[in-house]
């Protein structure tokens, strides 16, 4: 699941302030949480794909699922 708003990792200037570009700080409470809930529901739909994947930390994948490491390293999972 990608980030929202989309990030531009190559940028190192103010331009990449994705939150500002999408006006997250200025949404009403209701608008903000409605958008979050929508994003979270979408993200949950991909749970089967990352069932054995760690999002960060020392391990990329759960022990026994090392065959998935290349896909994690290449950003596929």
């Amino acid at each position: 699941m990608g980030s929202f708003p989309p990030t531009r990792s190559e940028a190192v200037d103010d331009e990449f302030q994705s939150a500002e570009n999408n006006d997250l700080p200025n949404l009403s409470e209701e608008e903000f949480w409605s958008l979050w809930k929508s994003w979270f529901a979408q993200a949950q739909r991909l749970n089967d794909l990352d069932q054995h994947v760690f999002s960060h930390g020392t391990m990329l994948v759960e022990p026994g699922f090392e065959h998935l490491e290349p896909e994690v390293l290449h950003g596929i999972l």
């Binding site: 699941m1 980030s3 990030t7 994705s18 939150a19 903000f32 993200a43 949950q44």
Partner: peptide, 8 residues
């Protein structure tokens, strides 16, 4: 309110 980056 910076980003929605993680579902964890």
């Amino acid at each position: 309110r910076l980003a929605f980056q993680s579902k964890d």
